[in-house]
Amino acid sequence: MGEIKDIRKTKRLQTIVILVFVCGLTVWSAIGTDFSFYEVFSGIGLISNFVFLDLLPPDVSASNSLLDAILETLYMGFVGMVIGAGIALVLSFLAASTTTPHPVIQVVVRAFTSIIRNIPGLIWALILVASYGIGVTVGTLSLILGSIGFLTRVFADTLEEIDTGKIEALHATGSNYFQILAQGVFPQFLPGFVAWSLYNLELNIRASTIIGMVGGGGIGFAIQKGIKLFQYKEVSMAIILVLILILSTEFLTSKIRERII
């Protein structure tokens, strides 16, 4: 009995320590960012004024020129996904412990993609703008980088979950490395490959709307320009187009995923 009480006591103590820690972190953050509820509540008036008077209603007449920008965003997202998935496919076979030709290659590829992944796409865009200049090239390239970083990791994880018994069965027939990859590993890997690539397309569309803000072209650039020129009704129109694009990609990819898997 005494032991059970002790366990409950330490558990409760643990919970309290974690709670105090989280509260402490929050207070520390609030102080560090000069956060005050007064400012937030007094800001509510300003925000609603801005939203209802400046942003709304959206300027529908601007939709023509914005349409080009949103299509550009779609193109960048799609091209980024296809090229990124192609490169990630090769890299992931090198990065997965089940398929890598050598452990050293595995570590190098994992480290390389970890660096790409852990630097946000927008920062890649910022760095790339310095060498390629403003435009869709920067947007597409940073989306490709982002896709490689994300997809290599999830593809490699998928490859590592593959049933090794089936691979053993192909070894037993005397097949060689490439035959086993193509005939044994790839068919098992295909559903994950398709599902993750489609999810990556969603991520890319989201990312490509914002990459424009640092000079990557597309709708992000239009939003940034609209704000700088105080054309807020155009901005809200652009945001609506972004909403439509993101929701329809989500809808379409979920339909395709359902059919294929």
């Binding site: 049933d163 018994g165 089936k166 053993e168 069965a169 070894h171 037993a172 027939t173 005397g174 005939q183 044994g184 068919p187 098992q188 295909l190 559903p191």
Partner: peptide
């Protein structure tokens, strides 16, 4: 290995 056929408990077929 080509001359030795193997049959497994879990069949180990490629499902798709």
């Amino acid at each position: 290995r080509r001359e030795i056929g193997m049959v497994f408990q879990n069949f180990n077929l490629i499902d798709r």
